[in-house]
């Protein structure tokens, strides 16, 4: 039934999905709790300029320019938030739309690259090579390691920044550090899900896990597991169903989200039933 896994391109795709899914799920718990979903969306859309600039600079695989440009946009968002009176949403909308427009204009200057736009908008996980697999797992271990190492300060920062400060945490450094981790994870996940869908890998696992969790520890663990199930399940189901892999990952997570709502409703109903005397 899973004989398609004998295909090396499917093996590579599955390995990349299994590295990025759980890490995005882990990060997503804090992204949603800190109301940063739009922030993550802005970073992913900024990648379009990174892709186009990378091509223009002669990169065949623009991962490094994407990472650099997305980091620049992420830091610019934080810097503008600190230094101006502008609303967060305004700052993000300006950077998102500017980056998309800039990316399209830069791509229009390179007509031979125009056909590759789909690959970056919707992802192309089936084309990853073994180097990409290695990078994805390296980054996954790095991000997971840092998150576990700094878990307590990050949780306190998410709860209340002033309490974190009084607790001896360097709030500004932690904020920048978290944003850089998120940028790295998002930039690399664009290869799997594309600019348009990558936020689903960040937002949906914690939203699904939320329905099953009673505390933060469970939330983190379930979100991590849902990331594995959603990303891995999406890759595995896309082949026999002959569907594009990136969107199938998102739809798998969406299906799990609907199921989680049903489970939540059933649990609530069960709790509401009063015991008979």
């Amino acid at each position: 039934m899973l004989e398609f896994l004998a295909e090396p391109f499917m093996q590579r795709a599955l390995l990349v999905a299994l590295a990025l899914g759980p890490i995005c799920g882990f990060l997503g718990v804090f992204v949603t709790a800190r109301r940063m979903a739009f922030f993550s969306d802005t970073i992913s859309h900024a990648a379009l300029t990174g892709v186009a600039a990378g091509f223009l600079a002669g990169f065949e695989e623009p991962t490094i320019p994407v990472l650099l440009y997305c980091s620049l946009v992420a830091v610019a968002m934080l810097w503008l938030r600190e230094r101006t009176q502008l609303l967060n949403d305004t700052i993000m909308a300006v950077l998102l739309s500017s980056s998309v427009a800039g990316g399209v204009v830069l791509l229009s200057l390179q007509r031979n690259r125009w056909a590759e736009l789909d690959k970056f908008l919707l992802g192309d996980i089936l084309s990853v090579n073994w180097t990409d697999v290695g990078v994805a797992w390296g980054v996954a271990f790095f991000v997971a390691g840092v998150l576990l190492w700094k878990l307590t300060p990050l949780v306190l920062l998410t709860t209340h920044e002033d309490l974190a400060h009084v607790g001896g945490i360097r709030v500004r450094a932690m904020n920048y550090g978290f944003v850089i981790l998120l940028t790295v994870a998002v930039s690399l996940s664009i290869r799997a899900l594309g600019i348009l869908l990558v936020t689903s890998l960040i937002v949906l696992p914690p939203a699904i896990a939320r329905s099953l969790s009673h505390n933060l520890r469970q939330h983190i663990m379930f979100s991590f597991i849902v990331g594995i199930v959603g990303a891995g399940g999406g890759v595995l189901s896309s082949y026999p169903l002959n569907l594009p892999t990136g969107p199938t990952i998102t739809l798998t997570l969406s299906l799990l989200f609907v199921l989680s709502l049903v489970v939540r409703r059933l649990r609530r109903d069960a709790t509401d039933v009063k015991p008979t005397a």
Binding site: A33, L156, G167, N215, L216, R217, Q218
Partner: peptide, 25 residues
């Protein structure tokens, strides 16, 4: 120094329990 802020303004999706919050200190 102990500090008690006015409120926390937590996002409902942040599932931290009282036990976990107290553990941070």
């Amino acid at each position: 120094v102990g500090y008690v802020p006015q409120r926390l303004q937590l996002e409902p999706s942040f599932t931290i329990s009282v036990r976990e919050f107290l553990s941070l200190r």
